[in-house]
Design a binder for these strands. Structure first.
Length: 470
RNA sequence: GCGCCCUUCGUCUAUCGGUUAGGACCCCAGAUUUUCAAUCUGGUAAGAGGGGUUCGACUCCCCUAGGGCGUACCA
């Protein structure tokens, strides 16, 4: 391994139709490490399962990375398109005596495996030491790697440390299936080598494969890249994060109302840390990230903390952008915002954004704006509307209609002055006013609520409730 | 079964042989108070268990327990 080479990392997802959040974090770590070292971050689509590898499924990967804000360098590599090169490498191995043809199948294979297990080592096909006759060559067969029977294979993992595997435990894996298709372990090694990958950062479910793959690199006389196996993300119950935990796909988090920058920050802190830093920018993450600082233990997805981080980024987010995201939420609810309502939302968002943990909540915070008049009051609110309160609110309405500054601050001041002039606390009229203005929906301070609603709408709602007909 | 990995507050983590074991989320209490939040202040809470090594272990070694991954002509 020549450490002088510029760092090249990669994310190598298979197109399954959705992008797992664990894949997203692996991509993030690869991205951060590449950027930290001034290297390159590549994408390889492992589309060897032709059934599932539809164009749409591939697009999901592109979209996922784009949404997360993790752009890859160069052109994506499609593994399936490289099958000829994979086969050529297998032939090289075969000619060098480092692979052999194997006609084992079905029951024979099972029997051989059981026999090997009883003998205390991994599978070795009897064909390993058998010369095939001409008639054999005619029949379909697989090509297996001729792994060393003795000795150890050591994986120097940047995260897990030095891990030793006994070669006797590593089976003679199939390199080329009897239908001529290259297998995963072979393809990965060839592709990573050809792509000049220097650092393979991936889930620790591949730690075992690292030993097998190391052997393949060595057999080809290639430099073994640096490995870094990071722990998987678990659900709240500690089990590997899967569908039954609910949201697992990147798109799930997007539709739940999480911001990509919040996901980046949160995911970066899952299995990695930089002292006591919790909230940090992308630039800081890149400056601070070192794969060697990654943890070894699995971590659980904590929704409370994700919400906290997301709330932070919502506050930081641009109002126009938030408006567009909120509009998407309304649209998916079948209640698209027209121009007028979009403009209203844009005005109100700065007044409510600090109250929302997700974009979905932000949308909910805006629903009071869009209540249709006249707003129907529930019994509790109606009960608050005593004659005394009506009279008081009428006096307030008069002052409001005379107000010439409709900002939240000045309205808040007006309300305070009004309460003082009436000689009562807010409790005497604020709940009723809120009910009239919002119909019971959660809303911010009354000054802000009035400001967000606008003068005309506010006064109209007051009038609705205070007019004798009501 | 066999192989490999992991194990600090409920959760994410700091610590890299000597700390009153720190921070964040959650939770609780107080402040604020016009709903719900938010915000501010304070607080509860941890080294899986057992052996070693050492003057001294969360930190190094071994065992046990628990969890995870792998053991395919899947990726």
């Amino acid at each position: 391994m020549s450490d002088s080479r510029p760092v090249v990392t990669r994310i190598a997802p298979s197109p399954t139709g959705s992008m797992h959040i664990g894949t997203a974090r692996t991509a993030l770590f690869n991205y951060l490490y590449a950027k930290h070292t001034g290297g390159r971050f590549l994408l390889r689509v492992e589309d060897t399962d032709r059934e599932r590898s539809t164009e749409a499924a591939v697009q999901v990967i592109f979209d996922g990375l784009a949404w997360l804000g993790l752009p890859f360098d160069g052109e994506p590599v499609f593994q399936a398109s490289r099958a000829d090169r994979h086969r050529a490498v297998v032939m090289e191995l075969l000619e060098a005596g480092k692979a052999y043809r194997c006609w084992l199948s079905g029951d024979e294979l099972t029997a051989a495996r059981e026999e090997a297990q009883a003998a205390g080592h991994a599978l070795r096909s009897p064909w390993r030491d058998r010369d095939p006759g001409p008639p054999d060559l005619e029949k379909p067969h697989a090509i297996r790697f001729r792994g060393p029977k003795n000795g150890d294979t050591i994986v120097n993992d940047l995260v897990q440390g030095q891990v030793t595997f006994r070669n006797r435990d590593l089976d003679d894996l199939v390199l080329l299936r009897s239908d001529g298709a290259p297998t995963y372990n072979l393809a990965v090694v060839v592709d990573d080598h050809d792509m000049d990958i220097t650092h393979i950062i991936r889930g620790d479910d591949h730690l075992n494969n690292a030993a097998r793959q190391s052997l393949l690199y060595q057999a080809m006389g290639w430099d073994v890249p640096h490995f870094a196996h990071i722990p998987l993300i678990h659900g709240e119950d500690g089990a590997k994060l899967s569908k039954r935990h609910g949201a697992t796909a990147v798109t799930d988090f997007a539709s739940l109302g999480y911001l990509p920058e919040a996901m980046r920050n949160y995911l970066a802190r899952l299995g990695w840390s930089h002292g006591d830093d919790e909230l940090f920018s992308d630039a800081e993450a890149i400056a601070w990230f070192d794969i060697a600082d990654a943890n070894r233990g699995a971590s659980r997805l904590d929704w409370d903390k994700l919400n906290f981080v997301n709330a932070h980024y919502i506050r930081l987010a641009d109002d126009t952008r938030l408006t567009a995201l909120v509009a998407e939420v309304f649209a998916t609810r079948g209640d698209p915002l027209d121009h007028a309502r979009t403009a209203q939302a844009l005005r109100a968002i700065p007044l409510v954004k600090e109250r929302a943990k997700t974009i979905v909540e932000l949308a909910d915070q805006l629903t009071f704006l869009f209540r249709a008049r006249p707003i129907v009051l529930d019994d509790k609110s109606r009960g608050q509307l005593t004659d005394e309160t009506r009279a008081r609110l009428a006096r307030l309405a008069a002052q409001l209609s005379a107000a010439n500054d409709w900002t939240a601050e000045s309205l808040e001041a007006l309300l305070k002055a009004f309460a003082e002039s009436e000689g009562v606390g807010f409790g005497k009229f604020a709940p009723a006013l809120r009910a009239i203005l919002t119909g019971g929906a959660a809303s911010p301070d009354l000054g802000r609520t009035l400001s967000a609603l606008g003068r005309d709408e506010s006064l109209a709602r007051l009038e609705d409730a205070l007019s004798p007909a009501a």
